[in-house]
Design a protein around this nucleic acid. Structure first.
Lengths: 360, 360
DNA sequence: CGGCATTCTGAAAGCGGTTACATTCTTCGG
DNA sequence: CCGAAGAATGTAACCGCTTTCAGAATGCCG
């Protein structure tokens, strides 16, 4: 395969020095005389020498590669994080191996193993909830492979530092906003909570805020749906066809909220006049939705950057960080307002003198 | 670093066999007796043995890793492609190294070098236009590292296969649709075309379609903007404040279109009654925008999958593929309609008896 | 101008696997 | 029952680079 590739030996020979010197020119340039260094560099350039990472990793014991596993890259919020992670890692000379686990614990374990096999020097994970096998795998190498967990701040029982935000608190704040506006019938369309501590924390936060006002959250006011726009649409339709429809719908993320917005529109409802809707993530379409979406801004890029800084450092020496809680502010926009004083016309039971189709 | 890591030698010793046998158990299991194989596997499992990729790569000459460089992961369309690429690669036992080049040729060259250094067995690139250094680097290893170029179908002068679609044709079709509806004043908000053959091809396509109807495209009807929502907003505002505003705006991607939609709304225009707007990409918010966006569906996931299949194959043996042109259908939705019969009220020059603010 | 501390540079031993080749063990045909 | 072909396993030579250690070159001081 790499038959004709230029190796360090070729460079050494062409420059009339030893391989050790060539190696030093690239790794510890300060140890080599300026003149020699220049000669080697020139020769290397001329020959088109590209050091072979595998050999380097094998000899030095570090791969200068970091792994990251996200639930999916389909969701822009994770993609943004990965983008930031990669750029920052790049600045430190690390490469990024990505894998997506699709919200599946078994697949995640598999990916961790694969990444470890690749000799990664660090690993970024999303969320606090991971199969025990993951932690076991991580600890196997000695010393254990440095890892960070993002998207969460609850560092409770996990053996690695967190760089994230408080999902529950953010959910609480957005519900508090709704309560202040006067809403009492507040429903939630959550993401799937099994194996997903972030989704669960958001539900818990909503529930806590409601409880503080003597309200509760339970099906059918609480529904769990995959994080997609069509699911948000369907969920909103279901909620709004309830005999006692909510005046506000809290969505687990912006995709669900965008769908809910469309659902409300399909029913002839005006948001926020007839119904308030909130999202979570603050993706770039959120501020430009119709109406602009009140949502929680998730510091995706910043998590990526901080994770990169931490992992780059931890790959070299001992880890200087234990936990970081980032801000996740509520972005108040036009999709929330005071609840309507009475049931919106579009939701009222059909009467004989009006076309029943309004309810569809 | 990897002091206490379990090596193949540990497994061999514990299982009472030679390292060669252990290696064979994992790579050519058919060459080992079932009984022995089982014994080795059990021992490996018990010891928690994880083969070290770097050593493997060094000894075998292949890293089983593929690289991918995209302009940015911020744009969902690329993230979707990468997600598909990774999943498919995973099925073939390959890992994925990603990097983003931020539409910057120098940065891209750097990333290619870095990836090559990592010993990748294949590389996915976006678009046909790349600095010569990239091709040089790719050919340096012998045989050359297999590469694919996505997002384009114009395989003209590039030395690697393409898996993509015809940007110009898609743009032509969407403009044809507009022309059929009766539009004559058609403007375009394009992405930055320098160093970006896709953006340039879209402009060319629009121009070709217009030319076929005796129309032309030039500033101020043509403006280039970064691919962001706010830029689409600003561009639409600029276009609509022209003395002779367009009745349709073709946008280089969905982000620009979403911004344009918001811009039109801000001016009090109703889309599509007063103005038609089209996008490109068909991101998941497009169908749920208000109004739903007429756009071109870019086969992002499919390009990722096909690139994975090709690269996985090419990494093993000779490449079985030369070029694939995928469909990029126009999705007709509600953001396009016949042009208004006369200048919309909101765009008419202010008169003394109406508030001038309508124009802002 | 010699001796010693200080730099630089080179030789060579791995790093943890893979794999060509040698060796040993089976299995049969003659 | 012997010998050879064939199957299974072991031996050891790399893969390309880093890094320790020793030796050569240089600079400084007395």
């Amino acid at each position: 395969m790499r038959d004709a590739a230029v190796t360090i030996r070729d460079v050494a020979q062409a420059a009339g020095v030893s391989v050790a010197t060539v190696s030093r020119v690239f790794n510890r340039p300060d140890l080599v005389t300026a003149a020699l260094r220049a000669r080697v560099l020139t020769t290397a350039e001329r020959l088109g020498y590209v050091a072979y990472g595998a050999a380097r990793a094998l000899a030095s014991g570090r791969s200068r590669a970091i792994g990251a596993i996200v639930p999916t890259l389909d969701n822009q919020v994770f993609a943004v994080c990965i983008d930031a992670l990669q750029q920052r890692l790049d600045a430190h000379g690390f490469a990024l191996l990505v894998a997506s686990a699709g919200y599946d614990a078994a697949r995640e374990t598999r990916e961790v193993r694969l990444l470890l096999e690749r000799g990664i020097d660090g690993l970024m994970l999303v969320g606090a909830e991971h199969p025990p096998a993951v932690w076991a795998l991580l600890g196997r190498r000695a010393p254990a492979v440095p890892a960070v967990v993002t998207w969460t701040s609850a560092a409770a029982d996990i053996p690695v530092p967190c760089i994230g935000f408080d999902n529950a608190a953010a959910a609480r704040r957005i519900v508090a906003h709704l309560l202040e506006l006067g809403h009492r019938r507040i429903a939630m369309v959550a993401g799937p909570t099994v194996g997903n501590d972030r989704a669960a924390a958001r539900v818990a936060g909503v529930r806590a805020a409601l409880a503080a006002s003597g309200l509760t959250l339970a099906p059918p006011y609480l529904s769990e749906r995959p994080y997609t726009v069509p699911d948000g649409h369907a969920a909103a339709l279901a909620l709004l066809s309830l005999p006692d429809p909510p005046t506000a719908i809290v969505c687990g993320n912006d995709h669900l909220a965008l769908g809910a917005l469309a659902g409300a529109r399909a029913l002839g409802l005006s948001v926020p006049r007839d119904l308030s809707i909130t999202g979570f993530d603050d993706l770039d379409f959120a501020a430009y939705a119709e109406p602009p979406l009140t949502t929680v801004r998730v510091p995706a890029a910043e998590m990526g950057q901080r994770a990169a800084e931490y992992l780059a450092a931890a790959a070299i020496g001992p880890a200087p960080l234990l936990g970081t809680v980032l801000e996740a502010p509520v972005m108040l926009r036009a999709s929330t307002a005071r609840p309507p004083s009475r049931l919106p016309a579009a939701l009222r039971p059909p009467r004989c003198d009006r076309p029943a189709s309004a309810l569809r």
